[in-house]
């Protein structure tokens, strides 16, 4: 495999994404968790850039890294939460999960190494915002509209869940 700048960038970004996710799970401080999650989002946006999906990358930064992470941090700061979280001690769970993830990783790596891809690399240069718009309001209009109902439902649901009992 040829080592190019793109490969190095991909390597660093994916390491960052994975580390962010892992730290998010293992940190005990909520703020730290939020920050490490933001790192993951950010690195994924970087990968999008590498794939020439500029629009998606920007959206990723704006929505996930910006809005969602910040919103979460706000939420954490404005609510009370236990500083000292009890550390759960479940060695069997940890062991099995890590072993399972390991097996999955090994088989996936073996799988992708052994596979032969037929399709040539697609030139993604032309894939911009225009194309996305066309797809959304053309081919995928029905699922797009359906997604709006999905969001509406999610909104209703979060209101129900978040509303305090006994409050009108």
């Amino acid at each position: 495999m040829e080592i190019t700048g793109e490969f190095i960038a991909f390597f660093i970004l994916s390491i960052l994404a994975i580390c962010g996710a892992v730290f998010m799970i293992f940190f005990t401080n909520v703020v730290h968790m939020g920050v490490s999650m933001a790192f993951t989002f950010l690195s994924i946006a970087g990968i999008y850039f590498l794939l020439n999906a500029d629009f998606l990358a920007v959206i990723q930064i704006m929505v996930y890294t910006g809005a969602i992470s910040i919103l979460m941090l706000f939420g954490i700061m404005m609510t009370r939460h236990k500083e000292t979280e009890e550390k759960l001690n479940r060695p069997i769970h940890y062991g099995l999960s890590i072993a399972g993830a390991g097996v999955l990783l090994v088989s996936l790596v073996l799988l992708s190494r052994g596979a032969t891809f037929v399709s040539d690399a697609v030139d993604t240069k032309g894939y911009g915002i225009e194309k996305i718009g066309e797809l959304f309001f053309g081919t995928y209009m029905i699922p797009f509209e359906l997604a709006s109902i999905l969001l509406l439902v999610a909104l209703i649901g979060s209101i129900i869940i978040a509303k305090k009992e006994g409050q009108e």
Partner: peptide
Amino acid sequence: LILFVSLVFGRL
């Protein structure tokens, strides 16, 4: 994983 390994991994 059992499913995956038995169906895919073995043949890999």
